[in-house]
Design a protein around this nucleic acid. Sequence first.
DNA 1: GCTCCCGCCTGCCGCTACGTCAGGGTCAAG
DNA 2: CTTGACCCTGACGTAGCGGCAGGCGGGAGC
Lengths: 252, 252
Amino acid sequence: MAYTVGQVARVAGVTVRTLHHYDEIGLLSPSGRTSAGYRRYDDADLQRLQLVLYYRELGFPLEEIAAIVADPAADPAAHLRRQHELLTVRIKRLQEMVTAIEFAMEASKLNIQLTPEERFEVFGDFTPEEHEAEAEQRWGDTDAYRESNRRASRYGKEDWLRIKAETEDWGRRIVAALASGAPADGPEAMDLAEEHRQSISRWFYECSYETHTGLADMYLADERFTAYYENLAPGLAAYLNEAIHANAISRA
Amino acid sequence: MAYTVGQVARVAGVTVRTLHHYDEIGLLSPSGRTSAGYRRYDDADLQRLQLVLYYRELGFPLEEIAAIVADPAADPAAHLRRQHELLTVRIKRLQEMVTAIEFAMEASKLNIQLTPEERFEVFGDFTPEEHEAEAEQRWGDTDAYRESNRRASRYGKEDWLRIKAETEDWGRRIVAALASGAPADGPEAMDLAEEHRQSISRWFYECSYETHTGLADMYLADERFTAYYENLAPGLAAYLNEAIHANAISRA
DNA sequence: GCTCCCGCCTGCCGCTACGTCAGGGTCAAG
DNA sequence: CTTGACCCTGACGTAGCGGCAGGCGGGAGC
C-alpha cells in the first residue's frame, strides 16, 4: 500500500534520481512523508507514475505531461485511449521506416541510386512531426545490437560479391523460366520466388511472406525496380510479382 | 550535387542549428566550404546524414553514432541490416505496450484491479533495456493528439455509465445465448462477439479481428478476466473465446 | 545497547543535444 | 545599389536527468 522511493524505482524501472527529479519539478510528488522525511508513495502515486512513464516514452516533455495528467477532464480510460492512439501512430511511423530500409536495401542490391528526397522522405515527411529522440539508451548493451554487430562484421567484400553472383544467377534462371512459358503461379516460378525470399532472409533480414509480397508490389510501383527487371526480360517484373504472390498464398 | 545548410536542413527535416552542432562535434562536417565560408554538403554527406538520423531516431547518443558511422568494417548494407533489426525490436516493444494498454482497458471496463508489478511490467521488464526517450517532440501539435484530446474530452460520466450499461446488457444476452444451448460458432454467439468488437471500436480504439482474438485469448489466460466471465455464467469465458475466434475467421 | 550497513535525504555540479538570440557578412533579384 | 533571404560564429539557456558528497535513519545481529 505504501512504498519507498527505492521500491517504486525498482518496480517502475526508473532510478531513484528520476523520482527525486519528478518530485522537485512537481510532476509526481509522493502523497506523504514519514516523520524522518522519507518519501512515501501510495497506489494512486503509482498509477500516476505509470501514466507519466507512458507519456514520457511517447516523447512528451515533462512539463506537458504535468498538464496532461493534471487535466481533470481526463479519466483513466481517456488516457488509455489517447495512449493507444499515440502508440498506434508511432508504430505506423516505425513501420514506414522499416519499409524505407527495405526499399534502400533492394536499391543497393540492384545498384539503383536514390535521390536525396527519397533518402529523407521518412524524416521530412512527418504527417505528424516526429523525431522522437527515443532517449539515449543502452542499446549498445542489448543482445540484438551485439548480434547485429557480429553479423555485420561477418560480411566482407567476398560475401558481397557472392550475393551479387547469386542474384545474377537467380536472375538468369527466372528469365529462363519466363522464356520457357512456365506459368507464374506454377511450381517453377514459385520455387524461384521462394528462393528469392530465402535469400533475403539469409543475407539481409527476416523476410516474412507478407514482407515479401510488399516487396513484390514495390517492384511494380517503383519504376526503377520495374526498369531493372524489365531490362533483364520484358514482362519479368509482372511475372515475378505474380510468382511471389502465388508463392505467399500457397505457403500460408 | 552540392547543397547549403538550409537546403540540407529542409530536405532532412532538421534545423540548421542541428547541422551546425553536428559540424562542431565532428559528427558530420560538410565536405567543403565556399570562399565566403558557407558550408557545402555533397551527396556523400547526405548519405552520412541519413545514417546519423536513423541511428539518432533509434536512440543512440551522438558520440556512439560517430563511432558507428565511422566504422570502416561497416558498409552501407551492414548499416541497413542493423537498422532493420533495431527497428524491428523497437516495434515489438511498442506493440507490447499496446497490448498492455488494451489489457488495462479491459481491466478498467470490468473493474478489475491491477497490481503495481503488472502496471509496470512493460517498463521494468526490458529484455533489452529501453526507455527510449524518443525525443521531446511536437506531439502537442499533431492531428492525432488533438483528435485524441477532442475525443477524450467528449466522454463524460454519462458516456461512461452508458458503456457500463451496454456492457451489462450485452453480458445478459450472451449468458442467455450460452444457456439456450446456442453453439459458440453459431450465428447468435458470433453476432454477440461482433457486437463486442464493435463496441470496443466505437468507445475505445480501433479493434481489428486480430486484436479481438488477442483479447479473447487474454480472457482465458488471465484468471481475473476468466473469473469475471465465469462469474456471469460457468463456461462463459471459453464460450466467448470460441465465439470471437469463430467470428474472426468467418469475417476474414 | 551498540554497531553495521543499506537506504534515504538534500544540495550541487555535470552532461547531452540542441534552441535561441546577437552581431555581422553574402548573394541574387529588382 | 539596396533589400531581403540566407549564411557565419560565438555565447548563453534549457531539459532531464546522472552522479557524487555529506549526513541522518533503521533494523538485524552481537
